[in-house]
Write a protein that binds this DNA or RNA. Structure first.
Lengths: 218, 218
DNA sequence: ATACAGCATGGAATTACATCCAGTAATGGT
DNA sequence: ACCATTACTGGATGTAATTCCATGCTGTAT
């Protein structure tokens, strides 16, 4: 239904996404023009109208930087809201490569905590393996509260699946490259090229719980 | 240096996060003013400056909607903080010197979590101040699950009241001397002589929760 | 040939915004 | 008593930004 974007339109769109990722807000017409080499902001305006007509962005009239991405994405899609019955939050242990995180086989037990205690809502608790996030107080054995979504921003703590391996890291993106950054000087950042490697974002970290039934604080 | 957002500043910050989630770009001064009921955009401007000075946002001079979240957090979600759940763990905020920990005045709200999730049972959650326990992953703003007791053993994490000040430390005793030991090389152990100083043990730490709707994870 | 999108320049009107200045008032600490 | 914050009202100014208009150059389908 959406006719393909022309190369120039793609450039404009890419610049909008890049700007929003790096600055946190969309560019103005003038900024687009400057970045793409137009001498008139009107060139940008007309590209925006084309992008709006093709449905990939939505313009907000009369509003500075009033550009919204129609389908927010790293992978595509939106927040899932599978309404599962409430026994509490499922606690997910070791996730086997290649299988879905919430497969019943991985669910150790349930934590009797309301998902809404965290914001955004937590969908499950993932038991953390390794020390890669210890500098921000996420230790081996901790439960990471995870909100299922693939809409992430630079700087967030994400649960990512890279080539079938599930890992918790800080997320940073630039164009087609993503860095998965550990919070521990002993671990080097992982650089991912989205053109050649399969990266899926399983969710974002929204909280941490330690000491759940059993292991101690020490 | 970043300590406390005032309630009003928190409102402004929440509105910024909410706007960015819903619209994809930050609000203008006028929009903040309208949302919070100010009659002048200058009120919003001054709150933004305060938030900038406290480090939670960064302002981009001369730029419309030039507001960036410093500690990335998205999906701020709904405004309702409370709502239900009286049968959870009370969350205790700043404890005034000399008053009992569980005095109603200190109870911010309740966490809908079963006390038995921790072992031994948690009686309340204490919001941690300061960085003295950061090396074992207990950070500023975390909720420490506390079991009320005054029977403690060496090496446990305790909530102690020393001369009317409430503090979280690791406990060690030898005869009439007690050491309250921080888990942070920048803090020296506190030596207490039980013959001359009043030390009360309020309880032991049995768990940690981070991210409980008061943001964190950064 | 002649339309019609894509891709631009250049100019200009009109808002939308950030930001400065001068006040008022309540609070809490020294 | 005094000063520093917090928390605003009200108004003003200049620039940042959207958006309209006129114009022209390409290709490629009609």
């Amino acid at each position: 239904m959406t006719r393909p974007l022309t190369p120039r339109q793609q450039n404009v769109y890419d610049f909008i996404v890049k700007t929003m990722n790096e600055l946190g807000y969309p560019p103005t017409r003038a900024e687009i023009a400057r970045a793409l080499g137009f001498r008139s902001p009107n060139a940008a305006e007309e590209h925006l109208r084309a992008l709006d007509k093709k449905g990939v962005i939505r313009m907000v009239a009369g509003t500075s930087r009033g550009i919204r991405l129609a389908n927010q994405e790293i992978d595509g899609g939106a927040d899932e809201t599978d309404g599962q019955a409430n026994n509490g939050l499922p606690i997910v242990g070791d996730v086997a490569a290649g299988s879905p995180i919430l497969a019943a086989a991985h669910i150790d037990r349930y934590c009797p905590l309301s998902p809404d205690f965290f914001s955004p809502r937590a969908d499950y608790l993932l038991r953390v393996r390794g020390l890669s996030m210890q500098d921000i107080g996420i230790l081996e054995g901790d439960l990471l509260a995870v909100h299922r979504t693939n809409r992430v921003r630079d700087g967030q703590i994400v649960v990512a699946r890279l080539e079938d391996d599930v890992t918790v890291k800080r997320f940073k993106r630039q164009g087609h490259k993503v860095w998965l950054i550990a919070e521990n000087a002993d671990f080097a950042p992982i650089e991912v090229d989205l053109r050649h490697q399969a990266l899926e974002i399983e969710g974002v970290g929204v909280g941490v719980i330690r000491g759940g039934n059993g292991q101690a604080l020490n």
